[in-house]
Amino acid sequence: MEIFSNANDFLLWTRGDAFNIAIGIFIVGVVIRLLEILLLGRKADYSEPRGSELQAEWKGGLKTMLIRSVADKGTFKRAPFVIIVGYIWHIAFLIVLLFFVPHIELINATLGLKWPGLATPLVDAFAIVAMAGMLAMLWHRMIHPVMKFLSTFEDYLVWLVTFIPLITGYIAFHRMIGPYPLALGLHILSVEILLVVFPFTKLMHAITLFLARWYTGAMMGRKGIES
């Protein structure tokens, strides 16, 4: 980082220009991706729905949006690892993201929204859980015949850009490398990379899964299927 005369400059850059650019790309990218999906639309369905059309589709759509987070018994028995570890790391990651006090302060400064945070040692523990979970998922992806078969460069890339913010955050918080402004700057930069990559990769699933579930749930609701 020779363009920065010292670590403080670097930190200022990550908090200023880089932050604005990353947020800009993230927002524009997500909007483009959502428009790409929504503008394609759905063809009119002339089949007679079970019950009123509006009710059948909305009830089915909203229900699947929620219920699909729970795996069916048979699938759970056949693939407990993906489901359990999947839950664990996602929840731990979200807790770290949303309940670490400095994160809440940043969100408050940016969006004007705030909520109570969790005690720091607790968040620290969740960070370790999230990282362990992600490493376990990576290992599983590399050895499970189906996941290995399906995985592409993108799958490993999105793993990496999600993992780096966790590890850099952990390093910065525990002052494991110095100077501190450099460590914190690296953490912020890694999050910015995550934001930039997000709209162009399957990280988008965090948003589009609700659309996917809605579409499927609405189609099934129309047919009177409990999904």
Partner: peptide
Amino acid sequence: FSSCVHCGL
């Protein structure tokens, strides 16, 4: 397609 994360389930 935007949502598939190759979980294999």
